[in-house]
Structure formats: C-alpha cells, structure tokens
C-alpha cells in the first residue's frame, strides 16, 4: 500500500510558444464579447427586462475580462510538452490537470492543424492519435515551424516502428 509514496509525474520539458497567450486571450475575449454583447443588445431592445439583462451582461463582461487577463498566463505555466525517443508527453489544465502519455510505437497518425486564429498568431496544433478512440494527444499553441518540424520527426519515428500499433 505504501509503495511509491512520494512518486510524482515531473512536468514535461518544453513550454509552448509565448504567442499562445495572445491566442488564448483573443479566444476568451471573443467569447466574452459575444455572450455579454448578446445580453446587452437584448437589454437595449427589451425595455421591461432591461435591468435583468444588463446587470448579468455587465457581470459576465467583468468576469470574462478577468479570465482574459489571468487564465492564459496561468495556462501558459501549466501547459507543457515533451517528445522523447519513446513517447509523447503532454500536460494540460489547471483545475482538471491532465497528463497524457502516448508511446511512439503506438502512434498511428500525426496531424498538424491551424485554425484561422492560430494562423494569425503563426501557431499550430499537433494532434497525435493512437489506436484508441480516446487516446489522442494534442499539443496546441506551438510555433508553426516548430510544429511542422515536430510532425515530420514524429512521422519519421512512427514509420520506422513496425506493427499495426494496436
């Protein structure tokens, strides 16, 4: 029962690109503007319920702005990744922290995805899937050149590994 007392997972070696903070900020800001904006517009149009709509709108706007300011910085400290010869290792989340480990020998596909916002910030997301439907590992917010290089490296390693990865 007492085996492994004090054993912990160490944080992965690499942090994301610092531009990821800006990318997350824009996402939070968009969300805040959309939600608070809809409420505010409704409040402006529906006179009888004005107070009931504008007060939540203001509250959500304040909350959203606070999230925009704080959470990305927080995330940046927590989100880390590492690729060794044997495995891909990623840490995400703060309230629900999650470590994902996928061994090289079981990787099936390596994708690079760039949404419009990510392109603006010259970032990419690398998605590594294994044979499990639940085992995909995402590294979001990498510099796009680094991401391409990483994807290429991962593809090379996994191609050199025999077996059908199940």
């Amino acid at each position: 029962m007492a085996t492994g007392e004090g054993t912990r997972l160490r944080p992965p070696n690499n942090s994301l690109n610092e531009r990821a903070i800006g990318w997350w900020r824009v996402q939070w800001l968009t969300l805040t503007v959309v939600v608070a904006g809809i409420l505010a517009v409704l409040g402006a149009l529906i006179a009888p319920a004005r107070a009931w709509l504008l007060i939540p709108a203001a509250a959500l706007a304040v909350l959203g702005l606070a999230c925009t300011a704080l959470i990305p910085v927080w995330w940046f400290r927590v989100h880390r990744w590492e690729v060794t010869e044997e495995a891909v290792y990623v840490r995400t989340g703060f309230f629900w922290q999650e470590w994902r480990i996928a061994p090289m020998s079981r990787i099936q596909t390596v994708d690079t995805v760039r949404g419009p916002l990510e392109q603006l910030f010259r970032l990419s997301t690398v998605i590594v899937t294994t044979a499990s439907s639940k085992g995909a590992v995402r590294i979001g917010g990498l510099d796009h050149e680094l991401a391409a290089e990483l994807a290429e490296r991962l593809t090379r390693i996994t191609q050199a590994t025999p077996g059908d990865a199940t």
Partner: peptide, 10 residues
C-alpha cells in the same frame, strides 16, 4: 495499453 492519461482535479 497504448497510452496513459492521468487526471487530477483540484
């Protein structure tokens, strides 16, 4: 087993 996911809530 083709990978591990470790989760820990606050």
């Amino acid at each position: 087993v083709v990978g591990w996911t470790v989760r820990q809530s606050f």
